[in-house]
Amino acid sequence: MSQRAAINPSAPLSRVRAGVGEGGRAARSREVLERAAALLAPLGLLLFWELLVRSAVLDARFFPAPSSIVGTFYTLVFVVPWQNALPNHLLVSLSRAAVGFLLGAIPAIALGVVMGLVPLVRAALQPIIGALFPIPKVAILPLVMLIFGLGEQSKWAIIAIGVFFQVLIATAAGVANIERIYLDVGRNFGASRLETYWTIALPGALPLIFAGIRLGWGVALLLLVTAEMVSSKSGLGYLIWQSWQTFSVEEMYVGLVTIAALGIVSFWLLDAIESWLLPWKARR
C-alpha cells in the first residue's frame, strides 16, 4: 500500500523507477518507526505518570501510581474470593451485553430489511422510530426497571432497546440504498421475495448493517455500565460504582482499564468478523 503510494503517476518514468526501490525501503523503515512510536508513547506516558506520583506532584489519592493499580489488578484477579473477583465481574458483564445485544440486533436486522424493501412498512414505522430514537435510552432505565424488575431481564431489555434502534436505522438505510438495478436483476432472473431478501437485500446492506452493529455495540457497553451502576451487585459497572462508594480508587482504575480493554478487543473482533463476512469489500 505504502509502496504504491510512493509511485507518483505524473512523475517521469526514470524517477518513478528509482522510487520503487528506494521509496519501498524508506517506507518500510518508516513503518517500523511508526509502530515503535505507537508502542512507546503510551509506555512513556505511564512512566511519566508513575514518576509524577512518586515525586508527589500528583495526588496519589486521585491518581494512584500505575504500579499500585497493577498490584490491585493482581489482587482482584487472584486473591479475592470469586464472587468479588474481576473475572467474575467481567463474565457477568459480558454475558449481559451479549444477550442484550443479540436480543436487540437480530429483530432489528429482520425488520430493517423489510422496512428497506417495502415502502408501506417504511412509511408506517418511520415516524414512530423518529419519535422514539432521540430519547436518551438512559432516561427510560427507571421505566425498564419498573417493568422488568431489578434482575438480569432489565439489563438485557435496556441494552436490547439501545442496540435495536441503532441497527434498525442502519439496516433500513442500507437496504433502501441498494442500487435499484440489483433488484431488477433479481426480478429478471426470477428471484422470489424471500430469495430477494436473502441473496440481494441482506448482502447488499451488510456493509451498512455492520456500521450499525459497531454503533450498537458501543451503545450496549454504555448502557451496560449505567444499568450495573444503578441496580446490580455484580459486573464492571458495579465494580466501578462500588469503589467510588468505598473510596478504593485503585479498584476504580482497574474497572476503567478493563472496560477500555473490553471495548478495544471487541472492536478488533468485529473487524475480523467483518472482513470474514465481507470478502467482497475492497480493502483500503
Partner: peptide, 24 residues
C-alpha cells in the same frame, strides 16, 4: 437481460454471479 450499467452482484464471486439464474 444484460444490463447497461454494472449489474453483477459485488457480493458474489464470478461463479456465483454466473450461476445466479440457475440457482433461482
Amino acid at each position: 437481460m444484460v444490463f447497461q450499467e454494472q449489474s453483477i452482484f459485488p457480493w458474489m464471486t464470478v461463479e456465483s454471479n454466473v450461476g445466479y439464474g440457475l440457482k433461482m
